[in-house]
Amino acid sequence: MATKDIVLAALFAAIIILLGIVPAISLGFIPVPVTAQSLGVMLAGAVLGAKRGVMATLLVMLIAAIGMPILAGGRGGIGVFMAPTTGYLIGWAFAAAVTGYLAERLITPEQTGLTQIVYFFIASVIGGIVVLYALGITWVAFFTGIGLSKAFLGSLIFIPGDILKAGIAALAGRAVMVGYPLLPQRA
């Protein structure tokens, strides 16, 4: 593994951690405060691609696991891997992998800006919402015994906020690509 890949993943992990510290994004029309940390996960895939994006999320998890309170709301410690919401945490690696893979596959420098934004949005929604929720909901359902369908219904209130985050990730992902391209090309 190239040294630069390790450094990029580490720097992005620092950004994801910071996004858990800064004030949550206030959306106004939704009562639930939304943490920016999962936005960071979508962006890790969109900006760095699958491999390094996954590394960045794994680093954040490791640092939480060793006992630093770096997850949104000051959570940390080994206990976050034995909680009802653990699926959403472990899901970060899969979210970054899928977002990154799709971004690498779909986006080329020749496309128009709008096309790139739309593709980044699709990649973020599939990776950061569909995949993440699939894992998160399954975990909650089995960990609490609440059942899949009800866990699914209960998590719907978070979807609008996450769609907005996918939108921000798409705009930011494309803007970063213009300013400092790092996304590996697969197409």
Binding site: I6, V7, A10, A14, L18, M55, L59
Partner: peptide
Amino acid sequence: GLAIGLVIRFV
């Protein structure tokens, strides 16, 4: 260890 050190250094 190197990567974790880097993250903590750069936060």
